[in-house]
Write a protein that binds this DNA or RNA. Structure first.
Length: 476
RNA sequence: GGCCCCGUCGUCUAGCGGUUAGGACACCGGCCUUUCACGCCGGCGGCACGGGUUCGAGUCCCGUCGGGGUCACCA
């Protein structure tokens, strides 16, 4: 068995001739985690890049584990990330008639047979096979039985016993499987309720999916599905199996996309980061969503699996924070400010200005909101970093701050230039350095020893607040 | 265990027979500077191992080791 890259010419020609149709097919049994989001994203990118359609199918046939809340959570997460699907959502649970019909076709042409083996039979056979050091593949006499029995049964698919099943995976290369390695899988239960490898074929064909883009954990299902396509006389789509994301800690694994949203990640940052896990475009690291769509191609997807690096994810997000439009960023940070107890209007001029002074200092919207809080709290409610206050509120420093405030009160036009000029005049007269007043001022204005430049801080804060905060500084 | 896939700095990756093996995050220095960031400059650090093929191998072949996936009347 070998895996070589297929000659790309053949597949690209076909793509031009027929519209690309891809689908994301989650089962609604939980949140959309990063792995699922990436699978959805690669499908979406491929569809948009090629001008094709991005379909959504909810695989909710496992009624015990599927919930409507989960379906909604997945759709919400995708919307937030900007992955909007085309056409109507297909709910697998509503297609039982079509599944039944396909099963009837298989029964009629004897592509399936009734298997009466019980769970005990199979376990016994498996144990025996394992004891002999071999692998277990279900084989039994039911396949060739002439007469029917009045016993419980399942429908098994009649796999070819010889030959091999071959397909050219767009990312994994040519995959060849000996047919003797593929078991006669159960296609439906006695009551006709179909099983995964069968419905997925029927539904993908129904949605006229041209490219099945999914996680590599489905790789071994593919030859089984190809056999079913052929038995049903359906066109076999192209396959692209994406490398999995490794090294997800339990916490990271279970975290849904919305938890990253709540942690202050930007949708564009998250998309950028997860797209670069397994895909690259030369040395470029930062992409807008439009750029990823423009540059993404399945043939540039790696075969090797990668793992999450939260520090790099933060850095990528920070880059997007820097590049984000100001008005947009202001709007995005409003809910995070609200969590800090600050209520502001997104169009507030002060908010816009404040965002500009702080954006380079935050990796997430949560950080941005926390760092910006000081601009909006009441002057006498400002929270202080006690260590910073103890360090910089010396007796002389506090005196300087009083004098600075008195001088600044004279400034009529409250701009960065005027503020700067006024303070510089003061320190020149006083024969001191900016250093002597800078940190004490910052602590008085911001509450911490870190923050934007003094002039911009005061300009954004406004004259009244600035003077109040400088004046209220007291040594201890 | 059978079958399949993968293996370039700690991490994400570029590389597609001839490169001083490039970039990014992180880390360590330095610069900038009113602090913290941003930014800029520099440093550390990698082709898993062993055989072949070839004038020449990170690139091709085989093996070993390591990692992952899959072996349901789940999806």
């Amino acid at each position: 068995m070998s895996a070589r890259r297929p000659n790309p010419n053949g597949s690209e020609k076909r793509m031009i001739m027929s519209e690309v149709r891809v689908r994301f097919a989650p089962s609604p049994t939980g949140v959309l985690h990063l792995g699922g989001a990436r699978t959805a994203l690669f499908n979406y990118l491929f569809a948009r890049h090629t001008g094709g359609k991005f379909l959504l199918r909810i695989e909710d046939t496992d009624r015990e584990r599927s919930t409507d809340e989960s379906t909604q959570a997945i759709i919400d997460a995708m919307n937030w990330l900007g992955m909007h699907h085309d056409e109507e959502i297909v709910y697998q649970s509503k297609r039982i008639d079509a599944h039944r019909e396909a099963l009837d076709t298989l029964i009629a042409q004897k592509s399936v047979y009734k298997c009466y083996c019980t769970a005990e039979d199979r376990n016994k056979a498996r144990e025996k096979a394992e004891a002999e050091g071999g692998s277990y593949i279900h084989r039994c006499d039911c396949r060739d039985m002439e007469t029917e029995k009045e016993e419980a049964f399942v429908w098994r698919f009649r796999m070819p016993k010889e030959g091999e099943t071959v397909f050219d995976d767009i990312v994994q290369g040519t995959i060849t499987t000996a047919n003797r390695e593929i078991e006669d899988l159960v296609v439906a239960r006695q009551d006709g309720s179909p099983l995964y490898n069968f419905v997925v074929v029927v539904d993908d064909a129904f949605q006229r999916v041209t490219h099945v883009v999914r996680g590599k954990d489905h790789l071994t299902n593919t030859p089984k599905q190809i056999q079913i396509y052929q038995a049903l006389g359906l066109p076999v789509p192209k396959f692209a199996h994406l490398p999995l994301i490794l090294g997800l800690s339990k916490r990271l694994r279970s975290a849904g996309v919305e938890s990253y949203r709540d942690q202050g990640y930007l949708a564009s940052g998250l998309n950028n980061y997860i797209s670069r896990l397994g895909w690259s475009h030369g040395d470029q690291e930062i992409f807008t969503f439009a750029e990823i769509i423009e540059k993404f191609d399945l043939k540039d997807v790696n075969r090797s699996e990668g793992s999450l690096d939260m520090q790099k994810m933060e850095w990528v997000n920070q880059q997007h924070l820097q590049n984000c439009d100001g008005a947009m960023l202001a709007e995005l940070v409003v809910p995070f400010l609200a969590k800090e107890g600050i209520v502001v209007n997104a169009a507030d001029g002060k908010l816009l200005a404040a965002v500009e002074t702080m954006r380079a200092r935050a990796k997430t919207l949560v950080e941005l909101a926390q760092n910006m809080k000081f601009y909006f709290v009441a002057d006498d409610q400002l929270e202080f970093d006690e260590k910073a206050r103890a360090k910089f509120y010396t007796e002389t420093a506090v005196t300087y701050l009083q004098e600075m405030a008195e001088n600044l009160a004279e400034v009529s036009e409250w701009t960065e230039e005027a503020i700067s000029e006024n303070v510089n005049t003061y320190i020149a007269q006083k024969g001191i350095k900016l250093k002597d007043v800078a940190q004490p001022s910052r602590v008085a204005l911001v509450g911490r020893a870190a923050g934007p430049g003094l002039w911009e801080t005061m300009a954004v804060l406004g004259k009244e607040s600035s003077l109040k905060r400088l004046t209220q500084a007291k040594s201890e």
